[in-house]
């Protein structure tokens, strides 16, 4: 199983979720995507939208300053 990584710290809504969703479509079921994003809108919305569209949020952790890592399972 591969683990994919995506950095959307420079993106703004709605491109944050657009980029996440595009990356998730490349995964096979069960594979993991690690997303680096900023707090605020991205942290509020990307995990929520991912869950709404059937993906599983495995973990959310603080990396540094305003950057968080969200682990999403397809």
């Amino acid at each position: 199983m591969n683990t994919y990584k995506l950095d959307i710290t420079e993106e703004h809504c709605p491109m944050t979720f657009v980029k996440t969703k595009l990356e998730l479509t490349k995964l096979n079921p069960g594979e993991i995507l690690e997303v680096l994003l900023k707090e605020g809108e991205p942290l509020d919305n990307v995990p929520k939208s991912s869950e709404e569209q059937g993906f599983e949020i495995v973990e959310i952790s603080h990396v540094e300053n305003d950057i968080y890592k969200v682990i999403i399972k397809k």
Binding site: P14, K21, L22, T25, S49, Q53
Partner: peptide, 17 residues
Amino acid sequence: QIERYSRHIILADVGPE
């Protein structure tokens, strides 16, 4: 294209496919 069609790509029933 990702930007142009972002509102479609977001939609659960449309998406990239």
